[in-house]
Computed example of a mutant assay.
Amino acid sequence: MEPISHLSTVHVKSFVTGASGGELVQFAFTTPGVEPGDDDWHTAEWETPTVTGCTARLLVGPDGGYEPGEGTWDLWVKATGLVEAPVFNTGQVPIT
Rank of each mutant, 00 (worst) to 15 (best):
D74W: 02
G33P: 01
P32T: 07
A85C: 03
S14T: 12
V87I: 14
A85P: 04
H6L: 05
W41R: 12
W41V: 09
H6C: 07
F88H: 13
K13V: 14
V51P: 00
L75Y: 00
V10P: 01
L82W: 03
R57V: 09
W73S: 06
V34Q: 10
K13W: 01
G65V: 08
K78I: 12
C54I: 13
T90H: 05
T80C: 00
E47H: 06
L24Y: 02
G69L: 07
E47Y: 07
L7N: 15
E84D: 14
V10N: 07
D63Y: 06
E45N: 07
P3F: 07
T50Y: 02
S20Y: 03
G18C: 10
E45P: 01
G64C: 09
F88L: 13
V34F: 03
Y66T: 10
G22V: 09
E70A: 08
S8Q: 14
P49N: 04
T17F: 09
L75V: 15
H42A: 06
P49H: 05
Q26K: 13
H42T: 12
G71Y: 11
L58A: 04
T80G: 04
F15T: 08
D39Q: 14
T50R: 09
V51K: 05
E23N: 07
T52Q: 08
E67M: 09
T30Q: 05
V16E: 10
S20H: 06
F29E: 01
P86N: 08
H11Y: 10
T52S: 13
G61K: 05
T50P: 09
D38C: 01
T43I: 11
A44N: 04
G18E: 05
T31A: 11
V25K: 02
I4C: 08
